[in-house]
Design a protein around this nucleic acid. Structure first.
Lengths: 98, 98
DNA sequence: TATTTAACTTTGAAAAACAAAGTGCTTTTA
DNA sequence: TAAAAGCACTTTGTTTTTCAAAGTTAAATA
């Protein structure tokens, strides 16, 4: 019998990071402010979780200009999508006792 | 648009507690040592997570005797089962963007 | 020009996680 | 029957994580 929690990704222990991933995957790209409002977080707290996800290369920043105004949005990387899916699969397996 | 992470239960942020719940639900009742071996944890670490779950009244201890030897097993409470299910439902909804 | 907004970074406190050692009781083994 | 081992913790102390709040920088708006 193998340890079922090994396959769970530590990065996704945090429900904030789980929320960020869910929102970005569902919406393709989301701005800092939208995330902040949806998840009701302080700037610093959101920024640090985004940073954790960026460090892991699960998401990346896209800085674009809308006119002269910078617009920052976040998108999932292929790795991020893969790891998120793997985590959810592992979770499901664990819960169902497979 | 409601904050999707609000419905997630903080107690289940921990993959160890998630693992404990999954195992106990799947097996009805599990001993301390079985949990310890399945999850590959130190005694103290497991005991403290079990304690968190007990404090929340998500599980309870059953002390029985097998002959003269005490046998400690853990079982889920109705509340525990309900909260675990609620958490998983919230997770699923969040992921699917419902 | 002053204020506001966006997207952070920094700081520091509080909480959580964890390993390791210790405890008390029972049971097995030499 | 004395010693060793096992069970189920508790205690201690370190490390890691989380988070809020304040500070920062650049651009936009009044």
């Amino acid at each position: 019998m193998k340890n079922p929690i090994e396959a769970l990704n530590k990065i996704f222990d945090s429900r904030i990071r789980l929320g960020v991933m869910s929102i970005i995957i569902a919406n393709d790209s989301v701005s800092f402010n939208d995330l902040k409002q949806m998840l009701e977080l302080t700037d610093g707290n959101l920024a640090s979780h985004l940073n954790t996800l960026e460090q892991a290369e699960y998401l990346k920043v896209q800085k674009a200009f809308i006119g002269k105004k910078t617009n920052t949005t976040y998108i999932i990387t292929p790795l991020g999508k893969q790891e998120f899916k793997a985590h959810l699969d592992a979770l499901e397996k664990m819960i169902k006792g497979i």
